[in-house]
Nucleic acid binder design. Structure first.
Ligand SMILES: [Zn+2]
Ligand SMILES: [Zn+2]
Length: 517
DNA sequence: CACAACGTTAAA
DNA sequence: TTTAACGTTGTG
């Protein structure tokens, strides 16, 4: 890895865009948590949102899910905002003794005191959906001390998961093949520009669930490192990202077709996809409605801690459980789905499938946003979106979520860097990764089968095609190197830099390039 | 179990 | 006090 030659975090500028590159951290670092809920210290009776997981980043209520729609009665938080860690059943209260029922779900990271910001501010804006919080421009706490419960996001839709089963059964190796699209480095993301990834709630762009399996009701995985199928698509949306990409016309390996190619948006069917955000052609939408606060944010010592190490890579999934409050199709106004909180095995702590991946977006910094959210209303407040970092799996580990095998590509040997766009964008719910159905949400969104859709039913294909992978040459601090760039389809790009001094790697690259010819 | 309802906790 | 939403309980 070329890490040793670079100092992180690095700031990389490409085409006027600045990115922050952080070295990957070990999310598993234990010492980062502390909690009280199940711990003893003044344990509170209730767990609190961790403030770090993907859903916790969502600042706005979707206003479409059952919980939102029936908030008064159900008194539940928006399905899209439900903390991953709270999805498991709470441990029986006064369980004074060490019955750590859910050892994994105990406490959140030392909550950054910052978390308090989580509380949503007055809402000023209203749009339709939740907002992902982001960093404000302050970057933050980066340090290693930061807990990263979740890794980032990938956007929405993670890889295809069909069902919980899929967790165990590697879908298609996402990494095994280089794959398609990813965003090129220069991403221009002016404020108000949508992230490419969030395909509007268009049935066609919605992640499709693998049919034939049990239904998954959880919201999407946002952390997957792999490029979710939808991400891909989204990346092709006309968006700053894409545009940039086009400009760069990077060489990319299209796994789907098994070959390298230069991008040509023009003929790429994907480019015909709808704009990433139906609501944001570029401007904020009108505000309408009242607002309401949302969560109170994490509180020191009160969270339930996200799964610790092993837990974050569990076999099954709590997260994959049904989350029945998800609307069928967000933007649409479909029939309401049922609401359920722990259902479907959510309760099983042991099941945090991909806790990390599934949910976590790892904001570059842990800062919580400050935007208000409206309860029953859309808002048009833009919040800075986090530049979510790609998931950080152990180096050789595979994406837990896609239990697929390890990346069978050079990437393994390469150091992984996370490149994040410098914080600046603002997005509303629709533009936020969470907005899209998360993996577990697929069930809700997928219902609409679109035979003729650009999206194939063959999840295998989609899957492989979704691991955006492209090799390109980038320059960092005057150093040129080959790098594989993967996009999460949203706000993050993962760049794997080859160690210039590693002949082997070089060869690998060469090989790859040759294929292209 | 999935779901619905609602008491209750706790932040603002 | 109000509001958000966690945890529990009841039903099918
Ligand atoms: Zn909602
Ligand atoms: Zn959380």
């Amino acid at each position: 890895m070329s890490d040793n030659k670079l100092q992180f975090p690095l700031t990389v500028c490409t085409d006027g865009e600045e990115f922050i590159i952080n070295k990957e951290e070990d999310p598993t670092s234990p010492n980062q948590f502390h909690h009280d809920y199940d711990g003893d210290r003044g344990r509170s009776k209730r767990r609190r949102r961790c403030g770090q997981c993907g859903p916790c980043q969502v600042k706005e209520n979707c206003n479409k899910c059952n919980f939102c729609l029936r908030r008064d009665v159900l008194k539940q938080t928006c399905i899209y905002r439900k903390c991953v860690y709270l999805r498991s059943k709470p441990k029986p209260y006064p369980s004074p003794q060490g019955g750590q029922d859910f050892n994994q779900v105990t406490s959140p990271p030392p909550s950054q005191s910052v978390a308090k910001n989580n509380r949503t501010p007055p809402a000023s804006s209203l749009q339709d959906g939740p907002i992902v919080s982001g960093h404000n421009a302050q970057i933050s706490q980066t340090s290693a001390g930061t807990f990263n419960p979740f890794t980032p996001v990938s956007s929405a839709g993670g890889p295809n998961f069909s069902s919980s089963d899929s967790l165990f059964k590697p879908p298609v190796p996402q990494f095994s093949h280089p794959s398609q699209p990813s965003m090129a480095m220069g991403i221009s993301s002016p404020e108000n520009v949508l992230p490419p990834q969030i395909p509007p709630y268009n049935p066609q762009t919605m992640p499709q669930i693998h049919s034939g399996h049990s239904s998954m009701t959880m919201p999407p995985c946002v952390n997957d490192k792999m490029l979710p199928r939808s991400s891909q698509e989204s990346s092709s949306f006309s968006s700053p990202f894409n545009h940039q990409h086009v400009q760069n016309d990077p060489l990319r390996y299209d796994s789907y077709f098994n070959r390298f190619s230069r991008t040509t948006p023009t003929n790429d069917p994907r480019t015909n996809l709808p704009s990433p955000c139906m609501h944001h052609p570029g401007l904020p939408s009108p505000y309408h409605g009242t607002t309401s606060h949302v969560d109170r944010g994490p509180y020191n010592g009160h969270y339930v801690r996200p799964p610790t190490i092993p837990p974050y890579l569990p076999p099954s999934s709590n997260m994959l459980r049904h989350f029945s409050s998800l609307p069928q199709r967000y933007p649409m106004h479909p029939p309401l789905p049922p609401t359920g909180r722990y259902g479907d095995g959510y309760s099983e702590p042991s099941q945090y499938p991909a806790a990390y991946n599934s949910y976590g977006l790892q904001p570059t910094d842990m800062q919580m946003p400050i935007h208000g959210m409206s309860h029953h209303h859309p808002f048009n407040t833009f919040s800075n979106i986090n530049r979510y970092q790609p998931p950080q799996y152990e180096q050789s580990s595979t994406c837990p979520k896609n239990v697929c095998g390890p990346p069978a590509f050079p990437s393994l040997a390469l150091g992984t860097l996370r490149v994040q766009e410098r914080p600046q964008g603002i997005h509303n719910f629709r533009c936020n990764p969470f907005y899209r159905p998360l993996p577990w949400e697929k069930q809700f969104f997928h219902p609409i089968h679109q035979p003729n859709s650009a999206m194939s039913d063959d999840s295998s294909k989609m899957s492989s095609a979704s691991s955006g992978f492209e090799c390109d040459v980038i320059c960092i601090d005057d150093m040129q190197m080959n790098a594989y760039i993967r996009s999460d389809g949203c706000n993050s790009i993962e760049i794997e830099i080859e160690d210039p001094h590693s002949p082997n790697e070089q060869n690998k690259y060469d090989d790859i390039k040759k294929k292209n010819n």
